[in-house]
Design a binder for these strands. Structure first.
Lengths: 353, 353
DNA sequence: CCCCTTTCTGCACGTTTGTGCAATCTGGTT
DNA sequence: AACCAGATTGCACAAACGTGCAGAAAGGGG
């Protein structure tokens, strides 16, 4: 190995160009590491820098989407659970492997990481991406990786007066992260989650500022949301965050509501007609939502199962990302209801481990 | 957390299904490692196995193409060299970063690894893939990663009587590896590289067994090849492997040949008319080759530059994978010839490091 | 020109990962 | 039943990797 210390500390002075030599080095390093299988140490020597810098360059390359790692789900022999869900509910399922023993919060975290990586490839240029808020989406938003697409817009799906800061990140924070990851404009929806009076909502819905958002929502090409479930052990913060008072909750019970998507409520069979609270909610009309091309639902935790079943019955999602335990439970319940179908369940829940 | 240790050592007895639980575990492990960022140790605990097994599962997952890692070359601000080559020669260039200080053989190895990974995404179902042989292709063949495509065929581009085992892997070995990686049928071309008499070739070309191969070559959708260069420092073994005698070499010189692709020769300007040896060579007609949709040329080493320039002049390739030094040299030479163009060369060769 | 703030770098350390080897397990055969 | 060949496992060790920290460089005002 020849001399190596001559041209060194200059480097940045030659640096002028926009993205800089940093990302160029990151590309080089990524190629050498992921395509040529060199060690970071070897790369460091070629790049005349330290191994730790290479480590950081690679980390940058992953972060900025220069490197894309995809785990291929060979569709034919896909895991049994995903096939079953697809068949029964007509949604593309992405089951996140999580052992039953991990805590709920860790499971959420892991579903969120995998969700963030699963949705990236679904995002395209010129998209209008509707994003809800809630603990699930918040977690997802933290793990998005950058993807360079152009002229896209992130639009908030439902209002969220952050009057009651419950500690979760604000809706605006979630949106900001999405916007940053995809280099997209962000359009907030500056209304409270619920109006007190349906008339106020009607009035607001005629305001130009609001109509602009509604129009964007109308032209959405992708929607990303979680679900709330009325009986969730850790109740969706819609139900516990002070948005609804006792009277509202009683009304929901009377209307047989099982859950919500973006603060729009529905029943176990998926119906949402005559649910009073929806008249005061700022979420998107569910019939309209169903027309969005790609509707991605992220769910973690068996406690949300009832809300999820309602959402599936309503046909709100085209893609479903959920943890393994919930997936199993979902299939199980469906089989119990409809025993005509091949009842290979006990076998199933073992086979896919 | 419920009981957990009941069903365990059974595992393989319940195992019957084709691919088995091994690849299923590999998929799970891959998801957890690459999509959820768990450590192998954590995965091992969830899978109830040892960390080393997880390491091996992941290695399997990468090997079998379950995990796909791609390094995204953001086309707009692509490395300068690749743009320049694209503009001047009309081929899609993939420049492999290799420091000038590494040995030729190591450079070849690294170009080969990256080439193998670069061509995988280009392979599709129902393809007919023509493959040449030589030290470059041999190196590439060692690093192919599996990709599940269906009903494809690998066809040998030119004959190679392995009468003279020079130590490099036989053509058949190269083909076998390609076939295995892509799950494709392999069609060998059982003729010597060169006939002694052109008439023998004509006769053979009417044999049914040969015609079948020629027909496949005619329907090729992808071709993969290196280049030979007459004056290569480490001469392509076509020129030194005993295939050609002194008289042949003299004839090549007289015909002003600079190099070959799949044992078909051409001149610096890309022409190949009236090159006598081509009448006795078993390689594909170059005019025909040019009609193949995707023609991938892999080159490592500046010594091949003359052959490469001829091949490019002949328009034999649509995609070019080459090491950085050669790429620089290529652009340099082109600029010298045609000084009208923006002569930003000194700057260039520095800027892209 | 100097000073302050921000960013970047290499080192050192602890963690994480790959792999040769011996022990074990599996399925098939005598 | 006993045996054997091949595959698979966990262990132990070495190699490779990530990151907090302190110092150095770069950029931005005054």
């Amino acid at each position: 190995m020849p001399s190596r210390d001559s041209s060194r500390r200059r480097r940045t002075s030659t640096d002028k160009e926009g993205a800089g030599h940093r990302s160029r080095d990151a590309l080089r390093a990524a190629q050498m590491y992921y395509l040529q299988d060199l060690t970071m140490d070897a790369i460091a020597r070629e790049l005349r820098t330290s191994r730790s810098t290479v480590s950081r360059l690679l980390s940058l390359a992953r972060q900025t989407g220069l490197v894309q790692i995809s785990v291929n789900n060979p569709t034919e022999r896909a895991p049994v659970l995903e096939q079953q869900i697809r068949r029964r509910f007509g949604v593309e399922a992405h089951v996140v492997p999580v052992a039953d023993s991990v805590s709920d919060s860790e499971a959420l975290e892991r579903v969120a990481i995998q969700a963030a990586r699963t949705i990236s490839p679904l995002m395209d240029s010129n998209a209008i991406i509707g994003v809800a808020w809630g603990s699930t989406l918040s977690a997802v938003s933290h793990h998005l990786t950058r993807k360079d697409i152009h002229d896209s817009t992130i639009v908030q799906l439902n209002g969220a007066g952050n009057t009651q800061t419950t500690g979760i990140t604000y809706a605006s924070e979630i949106l900001r992260r999405f916007g940053q990851a995809y280099g997209a404009r962000v359009e907030q929806f500056p209304v409270p989650a619920f109006f007190d009076h349906a008339e106020t909502k009607r009035a607001m819905w005629n305001e130009r500022s609001v109509r602009r958002i509604l129009d964007l929502q109308h032209r959405m090409t992708v929607a990303v949301f979680g679900v709330g479930s009325i009986d969730a052990g850790i109740p969706s913060h819609v139900y516990s965050g002070g948005y609804l008072d006792d009277e509202d909750l009683a009304q929901l019970a009377e209307d047989e509501v099982v859950g919500d998507v973006a603060t729009m409520f529905f029943r176990e069979d998926g119906s949402h007609r005559d649910i009073l609270l929806n008249q005061r909610s700022t979420g998107p009309d569910l019939d309209r939502l169903r027309e969005v091309r790609r509707r991605i639902c992220v769910v973690s935790g068996e406690t949300k199962i009832n809300g999820l079943r309602g959402a599936l019955a309503a046909g709100l999602a085209t893609d479903l990302i959920l943890d393994e335990a919930s997936a199993r439970r979902l299939v199980q319940l469906a089989a119990d209801e409809q025993p005509g179908a091949p009842a290979r369940l006990a076998g199933t829940s073992r086979a896919d481990r």
